[in-house]
Design a protein around this nucleic acid. Structure first.
Lengths: 228, 228
DNA sequence: TTCATACTTCGATGGTAACCGAAGTATTCT
DNA sequence: AGAATACTTCGGTTACCATCGAAGTATGAA
């Protein structure tokens, strides 16, 4: 009667609120210490320690020791995608953790999704890239066009070097706040890195929020216009 | 500190073994009654009843009453995709529910994944369609080519009528047994329906297994050859 | 060497939820 | 109407696990 893999183990790991909060914090892409994760989960360090070892043996987390610190990250991109897609589902079912607070609008405007840009700005960027013919959207698949490759080169992104990596260049990722797709993959990562290098955007510590400077926002909106 | 949607609720729903087994059973695509799901979960009807109402209020299940029966299905395709992707992750992390039993090989060979064909045969079919130029694979995206459209017409599938539906024509779905992509979307559904109409394949009751007749298997393998 | 920081392990506690028997409701069949 | 089927609700038990204090280990700093 029991066929196939056991999803209950993974579900139970994510099903505890403290663990879920720690995983959500790690969706920010940064490696975090046990102490930081304890704060994110709203629990003491002892409790966090047992949770973290469960998550690690369950294959959801990876850790590396560095001095007396222990840095945790999501095990791989597959886990990140799972968490994100669960957030999408949770949002669509109205499972919310928060009274909409002051930080929420910023989060919906622009935030980190593992290693790329999400939120209103992330969705707008992908829409604009598709509209301008820089990216072809076929079904759920995304591919950079020749035009896109040269346009991105002008911004300072070398697409051909990104292509050589194992990781897919483009990937669409469902946005939980916008309920629309934004750009993930190595190109999504490179674009966000590019904005931060230029000083257009910076991360808020202890949060997934990404804040654009006034000038950065102006440039971003000019670079990725919306269709009329 | 609490940002974004609450994935813990959904995780907890999936995290109970009985509920996970019921959800997995529903991945077979059939609507099942509370009694059938109780058997799938290995619990009594009373316990199943409470589980099912939790899953329904949690937004994972939909139900329709029909006489004195109550038929449950997964709420929508998004839920089905979540369950499937969790199976993929669980399989890759070695979370298995079973001692590899006699039914297992059949399941790996061909099975239902919500409404389309998965397992070795499902993966082979997509590989062959891509190799023959009937489907273009761009990143994770799949698109039917002109050649594919006419080839499929010969088999008895009218692609243009499928296109008119809201649902994506092609979608790639990660296979937990093969760890490779197979074909989902309305075309995946139509192909499986086509095989069953022709008598090539039939479903096994109470299981996700799909059994091909000797003749059906011969035809299938001929229609979807592997690259040398 | 001593103190401090970062984290783990142990042990005890408490709360939650899964579970089933029994009784109750709704629908269909005869 | 009466019986049977399908399912829900209630109540009480049980078992698990998240939690934290306290003590233990490991690494770094003074």
């Amino acid at each position: 009667m029991k066929e196939g893999p056991d999803i209950a183990q993974i579900g139970a790991l994510i099903g505890d609120p403290a663990r879920a909060n720690m995983l959500a914090a790690l969706t920010g892409g940064r490696a975090l210490t046990a102490t930081e994760l304890a704060a994110a989960g709203g629990i003491t360090l002892q409790t966090a320690s047992t949770h973290l070892s469960k998550l690690e043996t369950g294959g959801l987390l990876a850790q590396r020791k560095q001095g007396r610190h222990r840095y945790f990250t999501l095990a791989d991109e597959a886990v990140a995608r799972l968490i994100e897609s669960m957030m999408g589902l949770a949002a669509s079912r109205g499972h919310l953790r928060h009274q909409p607070g002051p930080k929420d609008p910023a989060l919906r405007k622009a935030r980190i999704c593992y290693d790329h840009l999400a939120g209103d700005f992330g969705v707008r960027m992908l829409d604009s890239l598709v509209a301008s013919g820089s990216i072809d959207a076929i079904g759920d698949g995304l591919a950079v066009t020749a035009k896109g490759e040269s346009d991105l080169q002008c911004i300072g992104i070398d697409v051909s070097s990104l292509k050589s990596s194992r990781r897919p260049l483009c990937r669409s990722c469902l946005d939980w706040s916008e309920r629309r797709a934004h750009l993930a993959g190595s190109l999504g990562k490179a674009l966000l890195a590019n904005f931060m290098e230029k000083g257009w955007a910076r991360r808020i510590p202890e949060s997934r929020s990404v804040i654009f400077s006034p000038e950065g926002e102006r440039q971003f909106l000019k670079l990725f216009p919306l269709e009329a």
